[in-house]
Amino acid sequence: MPGVGETFSNPFTESRVAKHPVTTLDYLTEYAFAREALIAGVFVATAAALLSTVVVLKRLAFVGQGISHSAFAGIGLAVLIGLSGIWSEVLILASCFAAAMVIGSMGRVRGGGDDTAIGIVLAGAMGLGFLLLSLRQPLRRYEWYEQWLAAMDAPAPIGLESILFGSLMTVGPEGVGLSIVLAGVIVAALWWWRRPMLLYVFDETVARSAGVPVARLRLLLLLMLAGVVAVGMKLAGVVLISALLVIPGAIGLQFCRRLGPTLLVSWAAAMAGVTGGIVLSLELEQFKLTPGATIVIVLIALYALAAWFGRYTSGRGQSPHG
């Protein structure tokens, strides 16, 4: 993994560009990091696509932003302590879960609302993350800290650009394992709670009056969002992962009028966005494009196409109530 402060550099770039314009398939067969990124991407896209329809309908896009930015605090703490591998992932996941729970509980506090809670959590987590990241270098002057890092077998931390905009090289086998578990848990949870979740998403007031545990469903939803953010941020970055939680659902809802097709189109869009973004990142590596940026560009292109197509279908979803 590249170290903190190091410029993002791909050790394969020079040899590859020097040889010939190699295709992505060469990368996938030759290098484990590319395979891992693609496999993790497929599973993260599956989980994100299913949630994105709910995110769009419940207007939770800003919540996704709040949770994704709070991963930064977890990364900062992991870097400062010198955690690596699965423990680093667990800490990032914990920070996203904590943010989800704070946002969930603050939304009910008097005088607060979701957007207020998210604004506070987002700014606070970003500030804390930068503070913790900045502390590592000055602390290295102290012998006890060096000894601590040595005892922890601390790796060189990830570059800032990779944290913010993603990197194919930071996914690793842990990322693949976590993405498979995450997708499995989210698919199972959404299937198990599909009936109360559907009523909660469509009509929260009636859901509450029918005895549906609305507060618990909301927390479950936030925790699932936190899971996607924590696992997917290595690929798409802290700043851009929330796009994966919004754009696929928005594409599906552009021109589908049934739940099944909407979920299917959202899933296909997420898969196209992630795999297309990874391929673009690999093919155009001489431009050093981060996968987060290429994934978002592909998704936005698909959204524009869907919006254009949607204009030619009948005016759906316009409530007579305005």
Binding site: F202, L253, R258, G317
Partner: peptide, 19 residues
């Protein structure tokens, strides 16, 4: 209710009974 939800009349009518 979220009118943009891609649900049919029958799906909406079933929502409460199937809880």
């Amino acid at each position: 209710a979220v009118w943009q939800a891609p649900l049919t009349v029958r799906q909406v009518a079933a929502m409460q009974a199937q809880q």
